[in-house]
Design a protein around this nucleic acid. Structure first.
Lengths: 227, 227
DNA sequence: TCTCCAATTCAACGACTGTTGAATTATCGA
DNA sequence: TCGATAATTCAACAGTCGTTGAATTGGAGA
């Protein structure tokens, strides 16, 4: 047998692997593989370490997932809170567009993360579900408040149940990102993948025409997201 | 050791298990467990037989999934084809409502099946994806045709890319069913789960207001689905 | 009644899973 | 310079997975 491959050194590496780096790797794998079906070994491979190291930083696979959640949620909710501040007097559709921008900035990388959240919601894994509920709840709360402000200002239909208007906005966003670039080109024979930004803009214009007090009043121009 | 549990008889059972019964069982397990993470052993348990029996009727787990697909898709596509027949002169929103009814009748039981389809689309398992593409493509083709007929009759905005209008309709339906009854009550503190039918109706009214040539013209009344 | 076949189960394979305990080592403080 | 500790890996565990080949048996046809 070849004498090569001496057992790799065990001790600490030259560059310590932080818990955050493990989460980065997990994020990448989730994005690629999609599901809760990702294995710790795949995450470890991505991070360039042994699977056992994960247990040095986290108690379990589940704990790792919730840590991932805890790292991503607060920035998004904070952004939504700022947008939904009642002192913001810009037109409602512009503020809604800002909401969608916040979603994009905080969730648009890795569809696996969204798919994961979605899966846990419908499956309902013990313990995880409550955390996701808290996250989705906090986000939806802000959007709902924003829509109610719009109704109070006479810009949004008041005959529409606010929870439905909220639900349609939040949920739509989570999905359009993942399916549109895959499904549309093949199904409709488009040469290029449709621009997600353009699709989002069209969607909000449609939605606004639906919820506006006077649908004849056109939607104001909507800038790109990264502004 | 107790002499109980003599090895169960091996030969044929009194009531032969048909391939369709295995598919029924698979459907149930998919609906409950949700994902591609269902095991053949779970399906066999549900069907009350040995896992190996599945390999008597199907070549592999993948073949079983495509058989499930083949059993469900043709009725849906057939229904859509009838609705999209150009000789149907009813108002466009009513026909769109019919489309949603067809989705409901053919897909509303087991969210697991939809979740499965959605997962396979974004993950892209070899072989399976093409079949799903064919299915989604055939369905979307009919919806798109219907929307184009609406535009030709002056009922649907012609400045809206048809592929986007189609995508928004089809995709929205697949999702609202699964998430709404779970998320909305807890997040918005509703006493009861919102009626899916009511939510669907509200959604189509919103959508119609968005795509209609004249959004001031109200959506005609929309009957219940099972008619 | 005998034979054959279709339908079913059993037992096992190798691969992969989350998890753990012990072994190792680089680095830092004394 | 010497320990101690933090960071890392190894090897193994029990379990589950999809899959296969052989064994079994009830019922149909001759």
């Amino acid at each position: 047998m070849s004498p090569a491959m001496p057992p790799r050194a065990r001790g600490p590496k030259p560059h310590k692997i932080e818990a955050d780096q493990l989460l980065d790797a997990a994020q990448v794998v989730f994005a690629r593989e999609g599901l809760r079906s990702v294995s710790l070994r795949a995450i470890a491979r991505e991070a360039g370490c042994d699977p056992a190291l994960i247990y040095y930083h986290f108690d379990s696979k589940e704990a790792m997932f919730t840590a991932l959640l805890a790292r991503r949620v607060p920035p998004l909710v904070g952004a939504l809170k700022r947008i939904a501040d009642p002192s913001d007097l810009r037109p409602t559709p512009v503020r809604l567009w800002d909401v969608m921008g916040a979603f994009h900035r905080n969730l648009s990388h890795d569809p696996g993360f969204r798919s994961l959240i979605r899966g846990e919601i419908v499956r309902g894994t013990e313990g995880i579900q409550e955390q996701i509920q808290a996250f989705v709840g906090a986000a939806a709360q802000q959007v709902r408040s924003l829509l109610e402000q719009g109704a109070a200002r006479g810009e949004v239909r008041s005959d529409l149940p606010p929870f439905l208007a909220t639900f349609f906005l939040v949920r739509m966003h989570l999905e359009v990102l993942d399916l549109l670039p895959i499904v549309v080109p093949q199904v409709h024979g488009l040469a290029e993948k449709p621009s997600i930004l353009a699709a989002e803009r069209t969607w909000l214009q449609l939605y606004w025409r639906g919820i506006a007090t006077d649908p004849a009043v056109p939607c104001p121009p909507l800038p790109a997201f990264d502004a």
